[in-house]
């Protein structure tokens, strides 16, 4: 007869693996678009769980993203209390691309009023200018009759477009 031994109380007792950490990080919202998480935006690279430390690789959407420190603190706060040191390494080893945004992330962006980016795919320099190859749907009415107003927007990762059908300006994530 096997009797399950109770776990030792205190730090490090619970089984923590990469999936646990990714699940927790999926609760960390983007500071500027709270409806979508940093995991859904593809900002988490590798997660390394060791007996005494959790190392998280954070991939900035843009090198100069001013929200980076806020995100770093939010990660540390969310993972605090797991009984291990939390280390967040900002990394460019895998350059963040808008192609990293998950299907769930794209849908949440759209629901929040931001058109998700067209796929970048290798070899395509600036898909946002190639309307025929990569039409951008209006996040409000779904019309494809939208035009680029400004490749730059209120944050580094967004551009400004206009919908000819519902006559709304809207923001679109830059393909990068």
């Amino acid at each position: 007869m096997v009797i399950a031994a109770p776990p030792r109380p205190g730090a490090g007792a619970r089984a923590i693996d990469g999936a646990t950490i990714m699940g927790a990080l999926n609760e960390v919202p983007d500071p500027e678009i709270p409806g979508v998480s940093i995991v859904e935006l593809g900002m988490i690279g590798a997660v390394d769980v060791r007996p005494d430390e959790i190392a998280v690789e954070l991939l900035p959407t843009f090198v100069g993203c001013p929200a980076l420190e806020v995100i770093r603190d939010a990660i540390a706060n969310r993972l605090a209390g797991l009984g291990r040191t939390v280390r967040v390494d900002v990394s460019f080893a895998t350059p963040w691309s808008s192609d990293r945004i998950s299907p769930a992330g794209r849908e949440k962006l759209r629901a929040a009023g931001f058109a998700p980016p067209a796929p970048v795919r290798p070899g395509r320099l600036l898909p946002m200018l190639d309307a025929a190859a990569a039409p951008v749907a209006c996040p409000y009415c779904g019309s494809l009759r939208t035009t680029l107003e400004n490749a730059f927007g209120p944050t580094q990762c967004r551009s400004i477009r206009h919908c000819a059908d519902c006559r709304q300006p809207f923001e679109a994530f830059k393909p990068i």
Partner: peptide, 20 residues
């Protein structure tokens, strides 16, 4: 106004690149 947004965003990129 559109250009104000654009040049400000480009400048912010450059300052971010400088920081890195």
């Amino acid at each position: 106004l559109e250009e104000d947004v654009a040049i400000s965003s480009i400048s912010q990129d450059e300052l971010g690149h400088a920081r890195a």
